[in-house]
């Protein structure tokens, strides 16, 4: 049974955290995941690093470059995660760009995810229509939820289409930007959050991009089911290492 829908039914606002696998050190993956769960995080996005992360700002780019330098590969990540379900029960999602998955083999990749107990995938550069026509059947065969993005520029018609082929949540990009580049939400974002909330979509929305602290987390979750933090957590890892994850999570949820 996929853990994402169950989690989404919980009567609370959800905090999801992204980190880049292989950063800061190559063998931090399981420690980070376990510490995040212990600290009260609801869902984790495990970033599969890519050499050319088009949708990411400088923080996640730098962590990806370092992770690859540290020797992270798709196979190594799967090996690190193989026993993760013995200790971790919250939903786990792999977020990565399409080319490394394509080279691994999309079906082999999905199969491996199922064996490990991965619940979903976020692939920013796999377009909705290509997924729908070519890969949907494979994802479903292995019980994986594919999460799609919408932005302030996404048309109503397209949002409805994305809602119709989603079966978990919709990843709502807070503003027209790459990751990690916004500081605080203004009137424009609040209007957009309300507009989407009023659409009463089938899938709950989780907001990402530009969420870095308690204030932005609260603003986002006023209108959505949850929020995702990436760059701010990577910065925390850079400065404080993996031992103080609890204090970071507490500062968001306090």
């Amino acid at each position: 049974m996929n853990r994402i829908p169950t989690k989404l039914k919980e009567n609370k606002k959800l905090l999801s955290i992204y980190f880049t696998a292989g950063y800061p050190s190559i063998d931090n993956t399981t420690t980070i995941i376990q510490n995040l769960e212990k600290s009260g995080v609801d869902m984790i996005e495990i970033g599969l690093p890519f050499s050319d992360p088009l949708a990411d700002g400088p923080t996640i780019q730098a962590s990806s470059t370092q992770a690859l330098k540290n020797g992270m590969t798709t196979e190594l990540l799967f090996n690190q995660l193989k026993d993760i379900r013995k200790t971790v029960s919250i939903p786990l999602i792999i977020m990565g760009y399409f080319n490394p998955m394509l080279q691994y083999g999309v079906e082999a990749f999905c199969k491996k995810c199922q064996e490990i107990g991965i619940d979903g995938l976020i692939i920013p550069d796999l377009p909705v229509d290509v997924y729908n026509e070519e890969y949907k059947a494979i994802f479903e065969k292995y019980g994986l939820i594919n999460v799609f993005l919408i932005t302030p520029q996404t048309s109503v018609e397209r949002i409805n289409f994305i809602d119709s082929i989603s079966n978990g949540f919709i990843y709502m990009v807070s503003s027209a930007s790459v990751t990690g580049s916004s500081s605080g939400f203004g009137e424009e974002q609040t209007k957009y959050f309300k507009r989407i909330a009023n659409m009463k979509l089938n899938n709950p929305q989780i907001i990402g991009f530009g969420i870095s602290n308690n204030e932005t987390f609260s603003q986002a979750t006023t209108h959505a089911k949850g929020a995702i933090i990436g760059s701010a957590f990577i910065k925390h890892l850079t400065n404080k290492g993996v031992s103080e994850i609890n204090s970071f999570v507490k500062s968001i949820l306090n």
Binding site: F50, S51, D52, T74, Y97, N99, M101, Q103
Partner: peptide
């Protein structure tokens, strides 16, 4: 090169076995 995705296009590109662009 091998088939893959670079800059939004499916084409031939130079990459590692792991799909990192070289």
């Amino acid at each position: 090169g091998k088939e893959g995705i670079i800059h939004g296009s499916k084409t031939l590109l130079m990459q590692t076995n792991d799909g990192q662009i070289t």
